[in-house]
């Protein structure tokens, strides 16, 4: 039976205001709202689509970040067979090399045929998790994948190129694929179903041991973008703004 593993992580919710920590070289985590990385959400969806189409089992694995339990129970409600949490020092910032190593040590016991993860996370600075994980496991990696089917010991994937061009590739399994988009948008599950999962399922914990951040970065400074070339902001009520926009449309010759 095909075993699909989906490593996921939480990233800053970009709808919220982001702030720099007192150190000046990291994000301030104090008030940061974390949500599942949207590409990881697509990876979960793609795994469940594959399971529904060709059978198999889906395991979702994640670092023990605050708020992760809800994400894992939501994955279970969507159709993941097992939900697993890596315990370790994931409270403050950690880099993707360290996370990929932690995933790799856990994966050895799980023996997946295919690993699907988000092609990137919005806070990736030392590369994304997927390529590192693939290399630590000695597997092939292909990213920007927007379509997967399993045929024999291979995955036939659709890789996106600019301008809408697609490359169809064959990848020998086991392999790691960086998912850009699932074949359909991530499904919605009712909160009641997630609550039911909280009663019926449990999260398996795996000890990730001490994290090894080597290969990560020594960031000198983080800052908010300077607003030097900021747009001219149009002020006033909606009618005034609309009138000004019409003037601009006339100036540039589209009316």
């Amino acid at each position: 039976m095909t075993h699909i593993l989906v490593p996921v992580k939480l990233v800053p919710d970009l709808v919220e205001e982001l702030q720099i920590a007192g150190s000046g070289n990291a994000l301030d985590m104090t008030w940061l709202r974390l949500i599942i990385s949207e590409f990881d959400d697509h990876a979960i969806e793609q795994a469940i689509i594959l399971k529904e189409r060709s059978g198999g089992e889906v395991t979702v694995i994640a670092p023990d970040q605050e708020g992760m339990d809800d994400v894992l129970f939501t994955a279970a409600a969507k159709g993941a067979d097992r939900i697993t949490k890596l315990s370790g020092d994931f409270g403050e910032g950690f880099n993707n090399h360290a996370l990929a190593r932690a995933f790799a040590s856990a994966v050895e016991g799980l023996a997946p045929d295919l690993i699907l993860t988000g092609v990137q996370g919005n806070n990736d600075l030392d590369g994304s998790v997927g390529p590192c994980l693939a290399e630590y496991l000695g597997m092939a990696y292909v990213g920007y994948v927007a379509g997967v089917s399993l045929e024999g010991g291979k995955a036939v994937i659709k890789k996106e190129y600019p301008g809408g061009l697609i490359a169809e590739m064959e990848v020998a399994l086991p392999a790691v694929l960086g998912i850009q988009a699932a074949e359909q948008p991530p499904r919605y599950v009712a909160v009641s179903k997630v609550r039911q999962m909280m009663k019926e399922t449990s999260i398996v914990e795996i000890d990730a041991g001490d994290l090894d951040p080597s290969g990560g970065l020594d960031v000198s400074r983080m800052y908010l973008p300077e607003a030097a070339e900021r747009a001219e902001m149009l002020q006033g009520n909606e009618k005034e703004v609309a009138a000004r926009l019409v003037e601009i449309f006339k100036e540039i010759g589209v009316i």
């Binding site: 090399h97 990929a100 092609v119 990137q120 030392d126 590369g127 994304s128 997927g130 390529p131 590192c132 693939a134 290399e135 630590y136 990696y141 292909v142 990213g143 920007y144 960086g178 080597s214 290969g215 990560g216 970065l217």
Partner: peptide
């Protein structure tokens, strides 16, 4: 990104 990420891990150099 497909290449740089795996090279970073393989050669143990930062990205």
């Amino acid at each position: 990104t497909d290449v740089a990420g795996t090279l970073s891990a393989r050669l143990n150099i930062p990205l």
